[in-house]
């Protein structure tokens, strides 16, 4: 078993096929999309492959250490930052092929016109614990 992160981008991924911003969808299309995501997560739980799923607000703040005894510096959001994460799902599956298959399903979530979005999702393997037997 291996864990993979399915990463959804607000920005930074190549454009989707059905690339209509969500605020141009009908309310029913938005509901259908949400339902699809929920059903997908439920199916993964039933198949014993679900680990976690979270959505992120589009706007965040950059924070950095500013020296001993000083409060951290905050800045941003920066418009020039290319990559903007929208959310993720963590899955625990038997193979890389299965992870790709599931990412493909998730990318088929319906969008404008009830048609699949075909959005690009990023599949990233987790680093694991080291195996006990090495040589």
């Amino acid at each position: 078993m291996a864990k993979y992160l399915l990463l959804k981008h607000y920005r930074g991924a190549p454009p989707a096929v059905n690339d209509v911003p969500m605020d141009r969808w009908t309310p029913e299309e938005i509901s259908a999309h949400m339902q699809y995501m929920q059903d997908f997560a439920d199916r993964l739980e039933e198949s014993g492959e679900f680990v976690d799923g979270q959505a992120l607000a589009p706007e965040g703040t950059f924070v950095r250490y500013d020296g001993e005894g000083r409060p951290p510096v905050t800045d941003g959001p920066f418009a020039e930052t290319k990559d903007l994460i929208a959310g993720w799902m963590v899955i625990d599956v038997d193979s890389y092929e299965r992870a790709v298959e599931l990412a493909g399903e998730l990318s088929a979530a319906p969008g404008a016109g009830g048609e699949p979005i075909h959005e690009w999702l990023e599949v990233r393997p987790f680093l694991t614990a080291p195996p006990t037997i090495t040589e």
Binding site: M1, L44, G48, F50, D92
Partner: peptide, 15 residues
């Protein structure tokens, strides 16, 4: 032990 939610593991076992 396998760092997955209990509900997921319960489903894996019952399947």
């Amino acid at each position: 032990a396998y760092l997955v939610p209990e509900a997921t593991m319960a489903q894996r076992i019952s399947r």
